[in-house]
Amino acid sequence: MRKAGSFDKAVSALRIERCYQCGKCSAGCPMGSVMDAPPHRIMQWVGRGAIDRAVNAESIWLCVSCQTCTARCPQTVDTAGIMDEVRALAWREGVCSPAMVRTKLFLEAFLDSVRRHGRLNETELIAKYKIRGFLSDYKMALLLKDSMLAPRLIKRGKFRLFGGKSGDRDVIKRIFDKCEKVAAAEANDKTPKEAHHG
């Protein structure tokens, strides 16, 4: 059974308790048809404290953050914001189903690059993502995918081997450290809460 304190506070600020399960978020969701649990189901689980089920759903990694759900909610629930909070919790606890590992690896590679340079280096992102992806399942397809795109990008001046760097990289590292420290402290800040499953 999960216990969570700061998570409850965060989703409450995003008005989870106002959700009355009308399903409008799922009706407009571009990914709803391929999700194991569409947004209104995630909202239901979060709302009644069954957070384990929400954290383990594949759909939190399929969400494209298009904000349609938040824009359309008749109860002004920030549905996409709550998806972020659930994903962040899953991230902190290292929960991710095997089918969704690539999405997680992509996000990791993205943030690594921003932490190091203050800006995204696309070449580094792609290299890291592909190598880590390959090491996770040893499938060649991902390594080779789009390899023919590189020369076409180069020809169009759309490929920069060395990405730009921000001048304030020490500050960026400190910003990352501080935010991760806050997240880690929140992960430990667990006050008892009754969870209902099923």
Binding site: V64, R87, G167, I175, E180
Partner: peptide
């Protein structure tokens, strides 16, 4: 903008909303 930094894009708000807002 002098010394601008990446906004963190979907990656930051997906895994650490505070980091996203901070960037």
């Amino acid at each position: 903008l002098n010394g601008w930094v990446c906004c963190g894009a979907s990656a930051a708000h997906s895994v650490n909303p505070l980091l996203s807002k901070s960037l």
